[in-house]
Amino acid sequence: MTFKLIINGKTLKGETTTEAVDAATAEKVFKQYFNDNGIDGEWTYDDATKTFTITE
Results as ranks from 00 to 15, higher is better:
Thr44His: 10
Leu5His: 01
Met1Asp: 10
Gly41Tyr: 15
Asp47Thr: 06
Lys4Ser: 05
Leu5Lys: 01
Phe52His: 00
Ala48Phe: 09
Asp36Arg: 09
Thr2Gly: 03
Glu15Lys: 07
Val21Thr: 10
Gly38Gln: 12
Leu12Gln: 10
Leu5Ser: 01
Phe52Ser: 00
Phe52Gly: 00
Ala20Ser: 05
Asp40Leu: 12
Asn37Lys: 14
Leu12Gly: 10
Lys28Pro: 01
Phe3Gln: 02
Ile6Phe: 04
Thr55Ile: 06
Thr17Trp: 13
Thr53Met: 11
Gly14Trp: 15
Ala23Asn: 03
Thr11Phe: 14
Phe52Lys: 00
Asn35His: 13
Lys31Val: 10
Thr2Tyr: 08
Glu27Asn: 03
Asp36Gln: 11
Asn8Gly: 03
Asn35Trp: 12
Asn37Trp: 15
Asp47Asn: 06
Ala26Cys: 02
Asp47Tyr: 05
Asn8Met: 13
Asn37Asp: 06
Lys13Cys: 15
Glu19Leu: 13
Asn35Ile: 14
Ile39His: 05
Thr11Pro: 04
Thr11Lys: 10
Thr55Arg: 04
Thr49Ile: 05
Glu27Ser: 06
Glu15His: 09
Lys4Asn: 05
Asp47Pro: 14
Asn37Cys: 15
Ile39Cys: 10
Glu27Pro: 00
Ala24Pro: 07
Glu42Val: 14
Lys4Trp: 10
Ala24Arg: 09
Ile7Lys: 00
Trp43Asp: 00
Glu42Met: 12
Thr17Ala: 08
Asp36Gly: 10
Asn37Phe: 15
Leu5Gln: 01
Ala26Ile: 03
Asp46Glu: 06
Glu56Ala: 08
Ala24Lys: 10
Val21Ser: 10
Asn35Val: 14
Ile39Arg: 05
Leu12Glu: 06
Tyr33Val: 06
Glu19Ser: 10
Thr16Leu: 15
Thr25Cys: 06
Val21Gly: 06
Met1Glu: 12
Lys10Leu: 13
Thr53Gly: 01
Thr51Ile: 04
Asp46Phe: 02
Lys13Val: 10
Lys4Glu: 03
Ile39Trp: 12
Asn37His: 14
Trp43Lys: 00
Glu27Ile: 10
Met1Gly: 09
Trp43Val: 06
Thr11Gly: 09
Thr11Glu: 09
Tyr33Arg: 07
Asp47Trp: 05
Thr25Ile: 06
Gly9Met: 15
Asn8Val: 13
Gly14Ile: 15
Thr2Pro: 04
Thr2Arg: 13
Asp36Phe: 12
Thr51Trp: 01
Ile6Gly: 00
Asp22Gly: 01
Ile54Arg: 02
Lys31Gly: 03
Val29Met: 10
Thr16Ser: 08
Ile6Thr: 03
Phe3Pro: 02
Ala26Met: 02
Thr53Arg: 04
Glu19Phe: 15
Asp22Tyr: 02
Lys31Arg: 14
Thr18Glu: 03
Asp40Ser: 13
Asp40Gly: 09
Leu5Glu: 03
Asn8Tyr: 12
Thr53Ile: 07
Thr49Tyr: 03
Thr2Glu: 07
Thr16Ala: 12
Ile39Gln: 04
Thr16Pro: 02
Ala24Glu: 11
Thr55Tyr: 09
Asp40Val: 14
Gly9Trp: 13
Val21Ala: 12
Thr11Leu: 13
Tyr33Ala: 05
Ile54Gln: 01
Glu56Leu: 15
Ile54Pro: 01
Ala20Arg: 01
Asp40Asn: 12
Asp22Lys: 01
Leu5Met: 05
Phe52Trp: 05
Thr55Phe: 06
Leu5Ile: 07
Thr44Met: 08
Gly41Ala: 09
Ile6Arg: 04
Ala26Phe: 02
Phe34His: 04
Ala48Ile: 10
Thr2Ser: 08
Ala20Phe: 05
Ala24Gly: 06
Phe3Cys: 05
Asp22Val: 01
Ile7Leu: 06
Gly9Ile: 15
Lys4Arg: 13
Tyr33Phe: 13
Glu27Asp: 03
Lys13Tyr: 11
Lys31Glu: 04
Gln32Trp: 04
Leu5Tyr: 02
Gly38Asp: 09
Lys28Tyr: 08
Glu27Trp: 14
Phe34Tyr: 14
Asn37Gly: 08
Thr25Gly: 07
Thr53Ala: 04
Asn8Lys: 10
Val29Gly: 02
Thr49Trp: 03
Tyr45Val: 01
Ala24Met: 09
Glu42Gly: 05
Asp46Trp: 02
Lys31Cys: 07
Thr55Val: 08
Thr53Tyr: 09
Tyr33Asp: 02
Lys28Glu: 09
Trp43Ala: 02
Lys13Met: 10
Ala48Leu: 10
Lys50Tyr: 07
Tyr33Lys: 06
Lys4Gly: 03
Ile6Trp: 02
Leu12Cys: 15
Ala23His: 07
Lys10Pro: 10
Glu42Phe: 11
Val21Ile: 12
Gln32Arg: 10
Thr17Ser: 11
Gln32Ala: 13
Asn37Leu: 15
Phe30His: 00
Gly9Thr: 15
Asp46Lys: 02
Leu12Met: 12
Gln32Tyr: 05
Leu12Arg: 11
Gly41Asp: 03
Thr25Asp: 07
Gly41Thr: 07
Asn8Phe: 12
Ala23Arg: 11
Phe52Asn: 00
Lys50Gln: 09
Phe34Lys: 10
Trp43Asn: 00
Thr16Phe: 15
Glu15Pro: 06
Ile39Glu: 04
Leu12His: 13
Ala48Trp: 07
Thr51Arg: 01
Glu19Gln: 13
Glu27Gln: 08
Thr18Trp: 11
Tyr33Ile: 11
Ile6Cys: 06
Thr53Val: 06
Glu56Lys: 04
Asn37Pro: 05
Asp22Gln: 01
Leu5Gly: 02
Ile54Met: 11
Leu12Thr: 10
Thr16Ile: 15
Ile7Arg: 01
Gln32Met: 13
Ile39Met: 10
Glu42Thr: 12
Gly9Leu: 15
Ala26Tyr: 01
Phe52Ala: 00
Tyr45Thr: 00
Thr11Ser: 09
Ala48Gly: 07
Trp43Tyr: 05
Lys31Ala: 05
Lys10Gly: 09
Gly38Thr: 10
Thr49Pro: 00
Glu15Trp: 14
Ala48Ser: 11
Thr44Tyr: 09
Asp46Asn: 08
Thr25Asn: 06
Thr16Gln: 11
Asp40Pro: 07
Glu15Asp: 05
Thr55Cys: 05
Gly9Val: 15
Ala48Val: 11
Thr11Tyr: 13
